[in-house]
C-alpha cells in the first residue's frame, strides 16, 4: 500500500521541538558511563610482582613490564584496545578496567608506574635475602652430611 507518511514525521518534528534533546551536551555535560564500561586500564602498583604475564598476553603489544630493580609497568594507552585480556590474566588481580577513555593527544606516549621501594636499596635488601637463604641452605647441607658421616 502506498501512501504519504509526511504527517507522521510532522508529528515527530513537533514532538522533538518540545522535548529534551536525545543527544548529550558533551563536553559541557560530562558523559555518564554505565558501571563496568571498559574505558582504560589502571594498575594497583603496590600489588604488582612484575611477572610480565600482562605484557606477554597483550594482543596489540601496548604493555611493557621491566623486572626489578627498575620495576616499572608501562602502557601506551593509544595502542591499547581495552580488550581486558591483561586483566583476566593478572595473577595478583592488580590490573583493573575502569571507565573513561584516553583523551586525544598530539603524540603517543607511554604512561608508566614504578613499584615502590625499588632502586639500589631494594636490590641490596634482595641480595641480602638471597645470601641469607643460601647460607641457611649450606648450613643444612653441612649438618646433613655430618649426620650421614656419623
Amino acid at each position: 500500500m502506498s501512501k504519504s507518511r509526511i504527517m507522521a514525521f510532522t508529528w515527530a518534528t513537533m514532538k522533538n521541538l518540545f522535548s529534551k534533546p536525545v543527544t548529550k551536551n558533551y563536553p559541557a555535560q560530562p558523559i555518564q558511563y554505565p558501571e563496568g564500561a571498559r574505558g582504560h586500564i589502571e594498575i594497583d602498583i603496590d600489588e604488582c610482582i612484575s611477572c610480565g604475564l600482562c605484557e606477554r598476553n597483550c594482543p596489540p603489544g601496548a604493555l611493557k613490564v621491566e623486572k626489578p630493580p627498575k620495576g616499572t609497568w608501562s602502557i601506551n594507552r593509544f595502542d591499547c584496545i581495552a580488550c581486558g585480556y591483561c586483566v583476566s590474566n593478572c595473577p595478583k588481580s592488580c590490573l583493573h578496567m575502569v571507565t573513561g577513555y584516553q583523551e586525544p593527544m598530539d603524540e603517543k606516549f607511554d604512561y608508566s608506574e614504578t613499584r615502590p621501594h625499588m632502586g639500589e636499596e631494594w636490590v641490596k635488601a634482595q641480595a641480602e635475602k638471597v645470601a641469607k637463604a643460601k647460607a641457611i641452605a649450606a648450613q643444612k647441607a653441612a649438618e646433613k652430611a655430618a649426620t650421614e658421616t656419623k
Binding site: P34, A82, C83
Partner: peptide, 20 residues
C-alpha cells in the same frame, strides 16, 4: 554497553563461554 562494557566492540566472548 551496559551489559558488555563496550558499545561496538564487546570483548565479552571467550573460548568456553562468556566473560560477563
Amino acid at each position: 554497553e551496559l551489559t558488555t562494557g563496550g558499545r561496538l566492540i564487546n570483548s565479552v566472548d571467550t573460548i568456553g563461554g562468556v566473560l560477563r
